[in-house]
Amino acid sequence: MTTLTVAKAVRADRRRRTTRTAVVTGGLTLVVFALFVVTMMVGSFRLTAAEVLGSLLGTIDDPSLDFVVLGLRLPTAATGLAVGLALGASGTIFQHLLRNPLASPDFVGMSSGASLAAVSGIVFLQVGGLAVAGLALGGAVIAALLMYLLAWKDGVSGYRFILIGIGVAAFFDGLIGFVLTRAQLFEARQAMHWLTGSVGQANPTELRLLLGALVVLLPVAMMLQRQLRMLELGDDAARGLGVSAELSRAGLLATSVVLLALAVAAAGPIVFVALVAGPIANRLLGPATGGIAPAALVGAAVLLTSDLVAVHLLPTPLPTGVVTGAVGAPYLLWLLATTNRQGTGG
């Protein structure tokens, strides 16, 4: 090949990849926006998309419509959107940092830490609402710090972190079981409901906190994506390319932990969304392309869809976590089966 044809091929390949990323990101944005609107259309009485948009944009002046859309349905829809974005971004950062599709933060102990703190609060302190969210937030952050300390040895390496994370998760889950056995019936029921995870349970303060964090942290995560792509090549290669490996990794981990902790605090430990969002985005983007924004959008799409199914399609409304669990578990089995066959589990 002459240098000219090589240059052309390189350019074409580059263009193909950037176009694909742009198309996928644009498409996902449209899908998420559509789901967001549909979430506000359905309910005890149906609205049209025009009515929802009119109320959102303030072009239709109808107090009863505003009450339904802005007062009742917007908070739930916005929670679904925000929690999905946060879980998707958090999950894909972890999976890329640890180079393992199993390394979703809800697998490596953080959701369990949040749950233990929240359930303890519900059962022993009889607290509710914002206090539970605060405890969950603290629990997730403490679990993350604990794991970072336990798994730390000349930096965090993938498999070690995952195995310790699974150990920590099992430990916390055991304690949650213990706490539940000590609970009165009412508190136990409340705790179980929280543990299943549902976007309907967020209160306005939690939502505002999560939205605020997203506005700051999603751009931060997207800025750190360049460093993340280098860290994937191994620490030595990343350093050789001029990345401050420890600093970038700490920044990425912190971003990911805070996003996950706030999402869990707002909606409870909704399982599998963080696990599936990254791999689905990767399928759409093409292998190893990676993208925090597309993964966040997939997370939002999965969560909004699950919530629509859970609340409106099933004969009795269920918590969102039931649906994500039912869809996510078979995916996990498939993932375990195929990664082992390819020998790429770590």
Binding site: R229, M230, E232, D236, L241
Partner: peptide
């Protein structure tokens, strides 16, 4: 100063163009 480590890791499914392009990071 460029460096090729002993055991660099390639992300699953990465293409040649993508990998070589990452050398432009600095």
């Amino acid at each position: 100063l460029g460096l090729l480590p002993q055991t660099p890791v390639a992300p699953d499914g990465i293409t040649v163009a993508d990998l070589v392009g990452r050398g432009r990071y600095p």
